[in-house]
Amino acid sequence: MRLSNVVRALHRHVHAAASPGSINASEIAHFSRLSSQWWNEQGEFSFLHKMNPVRVQFIREKLLQVSREEKGEEASSSTKILRGLDVLDVGCGGGLLSESLARLGANTTGIDASESNVAIAKLHASTDPKLDHLSYVHAPAETLLASPKRYDVVCSMEVLEHVDNPASFLSTCAELLKPGGHLFLSTISRTPISYFLTILLAEDILRRVSQGTHTYSKFVNPSELVSFFQKYCSPSSTQSESLEASGTSQLSSPWISPHASPNAPTRTEAEVRGLIYNPLRARWILAPRDAWAATDCNYIFWIRKPY
């Protein structure tokens, strides 16, 4: 599970203090060196590179499914589903996911607390003539709450299991969404199998990852995410830039109806899918819905903010 190296790096930088200052030539050389790590597809981050198409596939298919249910089959073109949407990638790292979303036509903003990550992401994107709709911000996600800008889609991949206060992190992501917006998260479950794969095997036995990278107690189960959103209600929507602000100041209903089982949220409100690595084919696959034990290690989560 070299993947954990990625998140370890992310983890380090999420908490790194922002250091102001403009970029100079020696730093560019330095970033280029680091960039070759983030973007070395067969190096440290190879697992993340291989996982990326599957994450995009899930995002695309989910948006397409929702759009088809609301607007009908004809209105939704499968290749243009992200075109024109405002997308925020929280903890963008080197920009693996951000670039893909931007290439699909989304107005993408990648945000990362690490200045070097953002510099690397910017440098890499500058070599690609097709990334016009992509920008990066070096800041903690919380700072965006001060601006009125809200997003159609917020993604945060492999970040949640490394933050100190997941509840506050989730609230921030949720508040950055427009009403009817989509939140995508991917993380690791707290189960014996994930302990075995990511900590015992990867860190203690194979030593592919330095010990102490993952903290078992910080892993988040899918049912816990569902339970969180069964209690979580959006704050008053008057400050939202939605065209249809309700006008009333009462607290809206929870994002997932409280009656649903935490293991099986209502299909139109949230979804959990396992991400499984097949070492023989060297690629990740998106497990089918409700596949047994599929979400016991890596998984991806979708939830929609109510209107």
């Binding site: 590179h49 990326n52 198409p53 499968s78 290749t79 670039e99 931007a102 690629r283």
Partner: peptide, 18 residues
């Protein structure tokens, strides 16, 4: 075509490996 569909970079190793 698959790489384009998932927003991938068609010149990348990840896109070509399959």
């Amino acid at each position: 075509e698959n790489a384009v569909l998932q927003g991938g970079d068609v010149g990348s190793y990840t896109a070509l490996m399959p």
